[in-house]
Design a protein around this nucleic acid. Structure first.
Length: 357
DNA sequence: GCCACCGGTGGC
DNA sequence: GCCACCGGTGGC
């Protein structure tokens, strides 16, 4: 039994994807912070699912395969303490780019939700069930110390007094989301500052961007900019250490989510090096944004989602929290069909990955 | 003109 | 291959 390691999940706004982060023993060994990100896209087939929340799903009656073939999440059996950055219904949220927060009711309580990320969950290190977190702030608080202080259901009683490991998980991995591994132990932003994670579209040159919003609303995108800003705004720099800022981003499980640096640019007909790009040529199953648009989270009147012990490898998602709409890409330059082609099954993904260099 | 988003690239 | 940084650009 290897030591438990953090695992994070992020569900992307309007992308019907969950970016899930977990820490595997391997990555912990290989990486300074020992994190990876697993992204699971729409129509993700359980047959080919990752092992990200295998333990969580093991709480159901279904049987699991033990193929941890992917090097990046091979130590899936140690996936614990997962955090999920999960986006609530954003159908009415056109202010995706804004920094404003919304309030919604979660089990008769009002919680502030970041429009850029949404709701957050964490995986219990005891029962491996996933629990929603009431806020991004709580997520960041837990993430900051997730390694030395693994999350347990009991800790959720802070905002859900009745919760226990005996309750159904709030969320399970299914095929409708994108998974990525977030980084553990990222310092909470200094008081008055906000850390923003923006997920890019499929096939981009990188997976995500991190921004910090200063108390005065200035958006900063690198430590250089922050350092410069602090020098120019000493009133906001007091007690603010650069070490409090981290621009580390989650990493997608779907390895081809991010275009390789050596990848060739696809020609207009979608061909790369004479072959069709995955978005058109692979047998992936895609979810169009229009289809996703009708999927909305139901964060209001929240109760712990009751998930039947069905086979998630084939059954559609029944958890209302798993319903989300996609985050539109502002730049029309990126074909939406390409972007939403992230909705591949895991098997297809691996097949595709196998063709990568 | 602003800015969110994306790509490119140097450095490691 | 990954990260950090920053320039380009299209939508508004």
């Amino acid at each position: 039994m290897q030591p438990s390691l953090p695992k994070f999940t992020i569900k992307l706004k309007r992308e019907q994807k969950v970016v899930e982060a977990m820490t595997s023993a391997k990555t912990h060994r290989d990486c300074k912070i020992g994190e990876q990100i697993n992204i699971i896209a729409p129509n993700f087939s359980g047959e080919q699912e990752s092992n990200l929340d295998r333990r969580a799903q093991d709480t159901s009656t279904e049987e699991k395969k033990d193929d941890c073939s992917d090097d990046d999440h091979q130590d899936c059996n140690n996936a614990q303490n997962q955090l999920v950055v999960y986006n609530p219904a954003d159908a009415d949220s056109d202010d995706i780019g804004s920094q404003s927060s919304r309030t919604y009711s979660l089990q008769n309580q009002a919680y502030k939700i970041s429009p850029s990320v949404g709701a957050f969950t964490v995986q219990c290190s005891i029962c491996f069930k996933w629990r929603f977190l009431p806020s991004k702030e709580k997520y960041e608080e837990i993430r900051e110390h997730i390694t030395e202080q693994p999350f347990v259901c009991e800790a959720a009683r802070e905002w859900r007094p009745e919760i226990s490991c005996n309750d159904e998980p709030d969320i399970r991995q299914d095929g409708s989301r994108l998974w990525a591994i977030d980084r553990p132990n990222i310092a909470q932003p200094p008081r008055g500052w906000e850390r923003l994670l923006r997920i890019r579209g499929f096939g981009g040159s990188r997976f995500a961007d991190v921004y910090y919003i200063s108390p005065s609303g200035k958006k900063l995108r690198s430590t250089v900019e922050i350092q410069r800003y602090l020098l120019q705004h000493p009133d906001e720099a007091e007690g603010v250490a650069l070490s409090r800022f981290s621009f580390q981003t989650p990493k997608p499980l779907q390895k081809n989510f991010v275009k390789k640096r050596t990848d060739h640019v696809a020609s207009p007909d979608g061909r790369v090096n004479g072959t069709l790009e995955s978005s058109q040529g692979s047998p992936m199953s895609w979810t169009r944004p229009e289809a996703n648009a009708e999927l909305q989270l139901e964060m209001v009147n929240y109760t712990a989602p009751v998930v039947e012990p069905t086979d998630h490898r084939t059954a559609p998602c029944q958890d209302p929290f798993l319903k989300a709409i996609d985050r539109p890409t502002k730049r029309s330059k990126q074909p939406s069909g390409h972007m939403y082609n992230a909705g591949c099954t895991y098997g297809n993904l691996q097949k595709y990955e196998g063709s990568r260099t």
